[in-house]
């Protein structure tokens, strides 16, 4: 394609633009705005005060009106740039406002207030990050607990997933035993049945085991992923059996073979599965929503949804907590993108 393009553009003489180049750049710039824009808008908004959020027209970055403490007034007063009657401009603080007329005073020389029409002034604004949006939900609401629950679920589920899936994959790739095909078939069959199809019976099984309203009830149903077993098995099949035979001659136990030979050699596939498992478990929503009904057990996703569903949505807190919920996934994305793209392009993981 590239060569065809160079060839075609060359024929048009020098660096002429073909219509596909224009489409390409329109698509890329449009994509940048549409795909990245909403996230940038979210992060910018999350640092605004409730007043800043209600502002129209909105700004991307969080601005707030500058304030100043003036002698004789208890509260800090907002600053405005005022066009005076003689045409000059001055920075004045607003003492009070009645209708269209504001009483303004000079903060450096607080004397008699000057009446100013509010159309003749504009607020002095500065960049200001409202950090309280982030600290308040942790201190005064339960978000610290939710964060802890999410981290616990993600870490535990990922560790168990790696251990049990790699053990099963080892058995299914390096041993010949009766029933191996049956096991493979069962795992293959469940690929067709996502969690959303077995919600009701799974709920009853989890309740019967006493795991309702328990973080383990969230973790355990997700760890025996058929996808993980498949991915690891495919990778282990490429490890030569001679290595295992040689280890057996040297009197290594089967456990040592798994632990000292197979696992280290499977590291790249384990890394891919670990990354995906972290993202999957961190993002899980429907199942935790069903299993967890007590507030102190909510994961970030469930807690965030509950808070956002309340009648009196406090957007400044919700937006900040949405950013917090996004952070681990963004970090994974920034640092481990290579693993993710190979995982998807190579094995169709999601």
């Amino acid at each position: 394609m590239t060569r065809v393009m160079t060839f075609l553009t060359r024929r048009r003489g020098g660096k002429g633009w073909h219509w596909t180049d224009i489409v390409t750049w329109v698509w890329l710039i449009g994509g940048l705005v549409i795909m990245f824009g909403p996230a940038v808008w979210l992060v910018g908004s999350s640092f605004k005060t409730p007043a800043g959020l209600a502002e129209f027209p909105p700004t991307i970055l969080p601005y707030a009106t500058e304030e100043v403490t003036v002698e004789g007034y208890d509260e800090p007063l907002p600053l405005f740039e005022v066009t005076l009657e003689d045409g000059s401009t001055a920075i004045l603080a607003e003492a009070r406002r009645i209708g269209l007329v504001a009483q303004m005073i000079d903060p450096n020389d607080p004397g008699e207030p000057v009446p100013v029409n509010i159309n003749d002034r504009s607020p002095v604004r500065e960049l200001s990050f409202e950090i309280d949006n982030y600290t308040e939900p942790f201190v005064h609401f339960d978000f610290l607990q939710y964060l802890y629950n999410s981290v616990f679920v993600t870490v535990m589920a990922t560790i168990i997933t790696l251990v049990v899936n790699s053990m099963a994959a080892f058995a299914l790739s390096k041993y010949k035993f009766t029933g191996r095909n049956l096991v493979m078939f069962l795992i293959l069959a469940t690929l067709m049945v996502p969690l959303s199809v077995i919600l009701v019976p799974l709920y009853s099984v989890v309740s019967a085991l006493g795991l309702f309203n328990s973080l383990w009830g969230v973790i355990l149903p997700t760890v025996a992923t058929p996808t993980g077993v498949f991915l690891l098995r495919q990778y282990m099949l490429t490890i030569p059996d001679e290595l295992i035979d040689a280890a057996r001659m040297d009197k290594a136990s089967e456990w040592q073979i798994y632990w000292r030979i197979i696992l280290p050699l499977t590291a790249p596939a384990l890394a891919v599965l670990a990354i995906f498992s972290v993202v999957w478990r961190w993002n899980d929503f429907l199942w935790p929503l069903i299993v967890l009904s007590r507030k102190e057990l909510y994961t970030l996703q469930v807690g965030l949804n509950v808070y956002a569903g309340e009648l009196n949505v406090q957007w400044h807190f919700i937006l900040a907590m949405t950013v917090v919920t996004m952070i681990p996934v963004v970090l994974v994305f920034v640092f481990l993108q290579r693993f993710i793209t190979t995982g998807i392009a190579g094995a169709g993981l999601k």
């Binding site: 940048l32 795909m35 990245f36 996934v329 994974v332 999601k350």
Partner: peptide, 12 residues
């Protein structure tokens, strides 16, 4: 740029 939203949670 195009892939980034895929990893975001449905709630986000």
């Amino acid at each position: 740029v195009f892939f980034f939203p895929v990893l975001l949670s449905p709630v986000v």
